[in-house]
Each structure stands twice: as structure tokens, then as C-alpha cells.
């Protein structure tokens, strides 16, 4: 079985800091894969490499048999990679609907003249994509806040809107950087449910960074563990939990006096 996304020996350093070193793994179509690791393990950097915010120094990233390592971020988005950010990166002054409509940007064609005219084909396209956006609003149960500027929303809802914006791209691969970070228990449960539903209904491949071990072990099919930029374990949640290196990285070793 060929993988949908292949990470082949990816390395990235900042000055003297080796953030990611020679990480390789495959992601199968339709799976939920979690990346875990202590702070500074290189999880977000790896995600940034996949979505081309950074270009890795060595190695390659292959999506559906096509190398995306050096492409510009908008090109990677057009190939079907969407993501959310650890510190929410929404367009704060815009409404929820407009943020989600921006998620439809790559699927729309309106240029300056059609936009200025807002009549005929230009208007039809806007309306058609508004319908897609409304489906997502429906799915995420955020109907009541659709016309609110996102800057005025509570944190948990902003996380949900950001997921909505990523979903609006209709991605093949969805990268979620700590979607539950800083949210309360209920919001965590909601988010876990949405992630499972997205995976279930659309078969979207999901790569998830998360610190909450309960959530990670519950919803992911496979787990990758990074420590100091290197992959130290890979496998099902149960396998990973039993790996000595993981226990060492998370809990440390027995103190010797």
C-alpha cells in the first residue's frame, strides 16, 4: 500500500538548533496520526515543513506521489493540505462567515472585475461557496455566531472557527496544531468529536499535535513520538505507551544517588 503522505528524512535547523533531524514516516489515506513529544521536540516545525511555511534543509515531503518540499505555501494548500495553528491565526476583524469564505479562496475563480461587478457569474460563485461554508457552519454548530467578528469570540470558539476555515478548503490532509490547547473539558470533547466526524464523514487524513494524552490515545490510530527533533517511537497508542524511550522522554529515568 502506498502512503498518501511520505516524510522522508526531513531535517530543519535554526542557527545552531537542530529542530527536526532526519524524521521519516508515512501517513496512510484516511488515518488519524498523532505527533507527540515534550516541548521543543520539533512537532510544530515538522508541521510547518509539511505545509511549506519552512522548507527543510534535507529530505523530501511527498504528497500523493508528488514532491511538495520546495513549493510555496499557497501551492501546497491548493494540492489539498490545510492546517490550524497553535496560537490561533484567524483574521480577527472579519466575521466567521468571511473567515470561512477565505477557506474557499483556492476553489473560487473571481478576479477583480467580477468581484467589482458582483453580478452574474461573480455573484453566483460567491453564493455557491457561501452554501458550502454554511454546511461547515452547520457541522461545527456555530450558526449563532456566523456574523460575529472572530476577534470578539471566546478562545474555544475561535479554535472551532479555525478548524472550520481549514475544513472549508476541503483538504485531503488536515494538520491540526494543538486544537485542544487551552480549552476546557467540554470544548475538548466537542473538538475530539468534530475531528472524529471529519475523519469519518469525509475520510480526511488527519495529523494531530496534542499534549492531552487521554485524547491522543483515544482518537488516534497511530502515534509518532518526537524528542529533541528525532523520532523515538512509532506505532499504535498501546505500543507507544510501552516503549522505554518514550517513558524516558516523558518521565525521565530513575534517579541514581
Amino acid at each position: 500500500m502506498t502512503a498518501q503522505l511520505e516524510i522522508r528524512g526531513v531535517s530543519k535547523s535554526f542557527g545552531g538548533v537542530q529542530a527536526v533531524s532526519r524524521v521519516s514516516f508515512d501517513v496512510q489515506q484516511g488515518e488519524i496520526l498523532s505527533i507527540i513529544g515534550p516541548n521543543g521536540a520539533g512537532k510544530t516545525t515538522l508541521l510547518n515543513c509539511i505545509s511549506s511555511v519552512f522548507h527543510p534543509e534535507t529530505g523530501a515531503i511527498v504528497l500523493d506521489g508528488r514532491e511538495t518540499t520546495r513549493l510555496a505555501p499557497p501551492r501546497v494548500a491548493a494540492l489539498g493540505v490545510a492546517r490550524t495553528f497553535q496560537n490561533i491565526a484567524l483574521f480577527r476583524g472579519m466575521t466567521v462567515v468571511d473567515n470561512l469564505m477565505l477557506g474557499r479562496h483556492i476553489h473560487m475563480k473571481n478576479g477583480v472585475f467580477r468581484s467589482m461587478l458582483y453580478w452574474g457569474p461573480g455573484r453566483r460563485e460567491e453564493v455557491a461557496h457561501r452554501q458550502v461554508v454554511e454546511d461547515i457552519i452547520d457541522f461545527l454548530e456555530i450558526e449563532a455566531i456566523r456574523k460575529r467578528p472572530v476577534g470578539s469570540l471566546p478562545y474555544g470558539l475561535q479554535k472551532r472557527v479555525e478548524l472550520g476555515r481549514a475544513l472549508a478548503l476541503h483538504p485531503k490532509v488536515l494538520l491540526l496544531d494543538e486544537p485542544m490547547g487551552g480549552t476546557n473539558h467540554e470544548e475538548k470533547e466537542d473538538m475530539a468529536r468534530f475531528i472524529l466526524d471529519v475523519n469519518d464523514e469525509w475520510g480526511t487524513t488527519i495529523i494531530l499535535i496534542e499534549h492531552d494524552m487521554g485524547v491522543v490515545m483515544d482518537i488516534s490510530q497511530r502515534v509518532i513520538v518526537l524528542d529533541l527533533g528525532a523520532k523515538i517511537a512509532e506505532g499504535t497508542p498501546a505500543e507507544v505507551k510501552a516503549t522505554p524511550q518514550v517513558i524516558k522522554a516523558y518521565l525521565g529515568t530513575k534517579a541514581t544517588v
Binding site: S51, V53, A72, P73, P74, A77, A78, A82, R83, F85, A89, L90, F91, R92, G93, M94, D98, M101, L102, G103, H105, I106, M108, N110, G111, V112, R114, S115, M116, L117, Y118, G122, E125, E126, R165, A166, L169
Partner: peptide
């Protein structure tokens, strides 16, 4: 024309560039 521009695809992309250029690139602008 300006009112129409700023409420449709191109105008939203403009605002996205202003508000968060990294996020704008990631979603394909």
C-alpha cells in the same frame, strides 16, 4: 465597485494579507 470588491473574493484576500499574512498563505492566498 469598491463596496463590491471588498466584500468578495479579492477583497477578502486583501484583508487576509493585512491581518495575518502567514495564515493567508497557508490557506492558499
Amino acid at each position: 465597485a469598491a463596496m463590491n470588491l471588498v466584500r468578495s473574493r479579492v477583497g477578502r484576500a486583501f484583508i487576509a494579507v493585512r491581518d495575518r499574512d502567514v495564515a493567508a498563505e497557508i490557506i492558499g492566498v
